[in-house]
């Protein structure tokens, strides 16, 4: 095992796949010579050169379109959209093109590509550089949606995304880039569509994603220490395909469900999971399923305001305590 930061795991994942497969190339704004604005792709340009690691103009439609045209005709490109908020200017390619070309052509067209993007808040960047938009992507049939919470998952799930035959939107959390964690040495490939129980427990289930996973775990630890409440935390890891088996097994065991979502309230991914659980596991529930989310507002820049907007350890802790008492 090696200790890597989340951002180093991004570069390690890309490097692993580029070494393995000549058809993998990487494009984006400031990703090559500068190593990315989040320094998540440092070293790739030096290692693989300008043919395979390419600085593009600020042309998000051209970036995703180029990745798509290349993927349709034999490459496996990785494209970076610097901030996930910017996906809105090239959303056509996500919502209408890469997600639908296979279906519309009845399987003639393929689109094996990865769109990496910096998602989520906590950096005091304000409303246009801080959003969690994984639920936008989840709403579109035809793409896969990944959002890792640890360096090991970044490398393993990124590798799996590159090898996947479908277009994958890969949400990296900006506030996790600096965290460190163990990453397996040598080739590391994970499996899309698998959630993980990251903290076992018996009294309640928290389902969380990305930055909300470490916060949920901390809240669970505190609930155990302070009140002896034993909470299981499930890291969803990929929203599509969705590993409902792991989530359902946990809910059957604990009888209580909480979702912790950074996306704003309406139509967040937790609503879908709650709806499935209510449909399928209603009689296994011992109480209401509860969603803990960012309120339905644009994100503020001020640190004190942003901190009370995105679910915090304290908010998760207090809400669960309030509901379970």
């Amino acid at each position: 095992m090696a200790q890597l930061t989340y951002r180093e795991a991004v570069a390690a994942g890309i490097a692993q796949e580029m070494e393995r497969d000549e058809t993998v190339a990487f494009i984006g704004e400031d990703v090559a010579r500068a190593g990315g604005v989040f320094k998540a792709t440092v070293g790739l340009f030096d290692k693989f050169g300008p043919k395979r690691v390419i600085d593009t103009p600020i042309s998000e439609q051209a970036i995703l379109g180029a990745a798509m045209g290349a993927a349709m005709t034999g490459m496996r490109p990785i494209a970076e959209i610097m901030f996930s908020d910017f996906l809105a200017v090239c959303w056509d390619f996500v919502a209408n093109e890469m997600s639908k070309s296979r279906y519309m052509s009845d399987g003639q067209l393929k689109c094996p590509l990865v769109v990496r993007t910096g998602n989520g808040g906590g950096s005091r960047f304000g409303a246009q550089h801080s959003q969690s938009i994984e639920n936008w992507a989840m709403a579109i049939p035809g793409i896969k949606v990944v959002a890792p919470s640890t360096p090991a998952d970044v490398k393993g799930l990124l590798a799996a995304s590159v090898r996947d035959e479908d277009p994958v939107i890969f949400f990296e959390h900006k506030s996790l880039y600096a965290i460190k964690g163990e990453v397996p040495e040598g080739e590391h490939v994970d499996t899309l569509g698998t959630a993980k129980v990251v903290r076992p427990g018996k009294d309640a289930t928290i389902v969380a994603l990305a930055l909300m996973v470490p916060r949920a775990v901390q809240a669970a630890d505190k609930l155990m220490t302070d009140h002896g409440i034993d909470v299981e935390v499930v890291d969803i890891r990929t929203l599509v395909p969705l590993d409902m088996k792991t989530i359902s097994n946990s809910v059957i065991k604990t009888g209580r469900l909480f979702t912790v979502e950074e996306n704003p309230r309406l139509c967040g991914w937790g609503a879908e999971i709650v709806s499935i659980v209510v449909d399928e596991l209603f009689w296994d529930l011992d109480g209401p399923a509860v969603r803990i989310t960012t309120p339905h507002i644009p994100l503020p820049a001020a640190d004190n305001l942003e901190d009370i907007t995105i679910p915090s350890v304290d908010r998760i802790y207090s809400k669960i305590l309030e509901v379970l008492r």
Binding site: G65, M68, A70, E97
Partner: peptide, 19 residues
């Protein structure tokens, strides 16, 4: 969707050049 296939054609051309 007007315009979308222009970047796609660019991508196909990138693949041709690359490979």
């Amino acid at each position: 969707i007007i315009g979308a296939h222009l970047p796609m054609a660019v991508g196909s051309a990138w693949r041709a050049q690359y490979m």
